[in-house]
């Protein structure tokens, strides 16, 4: 057990924005390879910021984030794109390129890496098949439903066979059925060993998954349970009055 290193480790991380001080305050947490972690908490608790610190979209004001025990903040800007290929990201708003078909959206992630066209033509349909879109490869995003668009995004996140998948409110814009499909897919991906970080508001999802739950509130980790349930933080409104 001792020789397994955390894949992601936050060490006393504080993140401050000019107009929004202490979005995260002195956060320390470790995530082990292969874990499925749900990140819960009200809007503005710091979930998205925490995820952005992992993908190096933001850098900590204080403290350090480690990926495989290497400090993320020390990565040269030029090398960021290469670092990010270790991490697949899925967003609430899908972030698909509107001018490209499902196939092209997924292929883009390989093209930027200089992968040969033959390999792209072999890998992309395969991964789209896994997310169940093999027959809709050549549709543009606007021709797909929300759930289908999110599955394209997931396929794109998976194409580099990343060690970690970061999903920031991936089901926020989806109907219950599509939500179940996406979560089911994430669990399946996790079962092959990929670490998953899922930020969500959806109590039902978290309770059903029954895995590790980290609850954030006001920039602090308020609970961290290995087989957690969705935690509703005590309302603070009364105190503020």
């Amino acid at each position: 057990m001792a020789d397994i290193q955390p894949i992601i480790r936050f060490e006393n991380v504080t993140k401050t924005f000019p107009h929004n001080p202490n979005v995260l305050e002195n956060v320390s947490v470790s995530i082990m390879p292969g874990e499925f972690v749900s990140l819960v908490g009200p809007s503005g608790a710091g979930k998205s910021t925490l995820l952005k610190l992992i993908s190096a979209e933001e850098i900590p004001t204080e403290g350090e984030v480690y990926f495989n025990e290497r400090p993320v903040g020390k990565i040269n800007r030029k090398h960021l794109p290469y670092y990010r290929r270790n991490i697949g990201t899925v967003f609430q708003d899908f972030k698909l390129l509107p001018q490209r078909t499902a196939f092209e959206n997924v292929a883009y992630a390989l093209e930027v890496d200089g992968v040969s066209t033959e390999e792209i033509n072999a890998q992309v349909p395969e991964i789209l098949d896994i997310v169940g879109l093999g027959d809709k490869m050549h549709k543009f995003p606007k021709q797909l439903s929300g759930g289908e668009q999110q599955r394209v995004a997931l396929a794109r996140a998976l194409i580099h066979r990343p060690k970690v998948i970061i999903a920031d409110e991936p089901t926020g814009n989806l109907d219950p059925r599509s939500t179940d499909e996406i979560i089911h897919l994430l669990l399946e991906i996790n079962s092959f060993g990929t670490t998953i970080l899922l930020a969500t508001h959806n109590k039902g999802i978290v309770d059903n998954i029954g895995r590790r739950v980290i609850a954030l509130d006001d920039g602090h980790i308020v609970s961290d349970e290995m087989h957690g349930k969705y935690v509703v933080p005590a309302p603070k409104t009364a105190l503020k009055l």
Binding site: E57, P81, R84, K95, L97, Y108, V112
Partner: peptide, 10 residues
């Protein structure tokens, strides 16, 4: 933004 997140260099 999307391109960068997907791993495209500047």
């Amino acid at each position: 933004e999307i391109m960068r997140l997907v791993g495209a260099s500047n």
